[in-house]
């Protein structure tokens, strides 16, 4: 741990976040967009924990915060997938380019 600079972690998290961002922006299936979102959550958590390890290892804020983030992300995923299912029932497709309106 002593030999590894903090920047290494930040770079890995940044690449993971950018991959997720690309997935969110470029995919056309709503479920694939959600997968990109999950990658972004993971990258943010990795960043938080890296800073915790290198600077604030005695404090508990980061582990608590990351736990709450994981919880909220799980809720968000469940609800978003339920919404995707509903959208599919109504429009018979989950393509975010074709499903544009809020009214069926």
């Amino acid at each position: 741990m002593q030999t590894l600079p903090l920047q290494a972690w930040l770079v890995v998290a940044a690449i993971l976040f950018s991959l997720g961002l690309y997935g969110v922006l470029a995919r056309r299936n709503a479920i694939a967009v959600l997968m990109g979102l999950e990658l972004m959550f993971a990258a943010a958590n990795l960043n938080l924990l890296a800073f915790w390890r290198y600077k604030w290892v005695q404090s508990l804020e980061a582990p608590v915060f990351v736990t709450v983030i994981i919880l909220v992300a799980a809720c968000e995923t469940a609800l978003a997938l339920a919404i995707v299912l509903n959208v599919f029932r109504r429009f018979r497709k989950v393509d975010i380019e074709e499903v544009g309106g809020m009214r069926g």
Binding site: L25, A26, R28, N29
Partner: peptide, 15 residues
């Protein structure tokens, strides 16, 4: 394709 018509812009934004 599985990518929408703004896919290239998405890649640029990510980079």
């Amino acid at each position: 394709t599985e990518f929408n018509r703004l896919g290239a812009f998405g890649a640029a934004a990510a980079v």
